[in-house]
Write a protein that binds this DNA or RNA. Sequence first.
DNA 1: CCTTCTATTGAGCGAACGATCAATAAGGGC
DNA 2: GCCCTTATTGATCGTTCGCTCAATAGAAGG
Lengths: 233, 233
Amino acid sequence: MASSEPVSRKDRVPTGRRLSAESRERQIVEGAIAYFAEVGLDGHTRELARRLGITQPLLFRYFPTKAALIERIYAEVYLKRWDAGWEATVRDGSVPCLERFRRFEIDYQRRIDDYAWLRIFVSAGLKGFDLPSRYLGMVRERIFAPLLEAMRAESDLPSPRAQPLAADEFELLFGIHGALVYVGLRSRVYGIEGTADRDTVRAAMLDAALPGLLATHRRVVAAASFSGPAAAL
Amino acid sequence: MASSEPVSRKDRVPTGRRLSAESRERQIVEGAIAYFAEVGLDGHTRELARRLGITQPLLFRYFPTKAALIERIYAEVYLKRWDAGWEATVRDGSVPCLERFRRFEIDYQRRIDDYAWLRIFVSAGLKGFDLPSRYLGMVRERIFAPLLEAMRAESDLPSPRAQPLAADEFELLFGIHGALVYVGLRSRVYGIEGTADRDTVRAAMLDAALPGLLATHRRVVAAASFSGPAAAL
DNA sequence: CCTTCTATTGAGCGAACGATCAATAAGGGC
DNA sequence: GCCCTTATTGATCGTTCGCTCAATAGAAGG
């Protein structure tokens, strides 16, 4: 893989010894993301250090415990990669609401269809950490709630203030969302390599699901209004 | 939880000592399924034994290694719970093909929306075992392939022998399938407890997705036939 | 060149891991 | 009631885990 040309001591990639504190920390974080994504959060600090070409005690100079390193991974992969533009997209009144939904999903799925993102997300869920539920709670409140409000308005339905959003309305969006996420899961978690480009597959799924969405949404809202705003079931 | 009445030595549940070999083995398998589903496949044999109320070496009397015990779990949870009736359902010519799909998914999802089933399935995928890909390969070949063949026939389209099934056609079914699976994943893996009954949610998703499926399928097959049977992309 | 600072290492601690084996005790057949 | 079978245990092996700490070595400033 690496070239066999002799490399001067000055410009060689400083993977070995005596890095600055900040670039060593960055290297550890990046390496930890790749490593724990591959083997799971039960991966071992010694093996991580070996892959980084450093000794294991050095990890504990930069992170007091293994748990702190994993906490840093969460911040790095999920909180840091949340795109504030998503919230702007779904609130853009100059675009039809179904098109906002499409644009959000295309962009969001491209971001999360990533080896480390999906695998660490699932690993965290299995280990009982609240990261996945908190993250999906953000999607629900910051993305889907404004979208449903816009869909209500576009269909001349009562605003969420007059009639609170029902659980079934969220499920409508989570259904399409889940179909798109599942495409990435099959590849990144289950190791199934399809022949088709996953972006294209997801675009086709949206083409199939979006046209009927507003009509379905109107039926759901009508059904929910019968049983009253509180009874979402 | 348990009643406080005194229990005669004869009919008390024999959880403690001196079980018959087969009932002890069964108890270990059941306990291992529950334990590894909860903590992941990196769970420890000592903790499993503690929960079963037995000593750790006894586990190794019934299973030579921890890996063998996990292999047994795979057989018990996935191969044994595969329902041959599913293959009959999707081949039942007396029922419209979309109704066959609905019946299969309702029954299948009810079976797999199970704490142990979903969590061990995902854990196995993360650990790189080929169980998930093999299992989904069975769904693809034994369920979806016959369904697509029936959908072709019902739409007067060429049979798979004349024009092989395209990857996009499978993605159509996996899309709806994934939306339904995701409902269980959010609960069982991410720990999100929705207010609504998940069976009802999935039924509503099928109601929304199935009516347009045959028309979409015809478009996909027409598009695939242009690029020739071999080029599925 | 020498000193200072600190990134990095080697050795090692206590605990817990998967797995082994001889000793033990519970139950069935006579 | 005794014996034989075998399910079950207690003790323990070698390894590896997360983590600690004193010693080392590489770069920067004078």
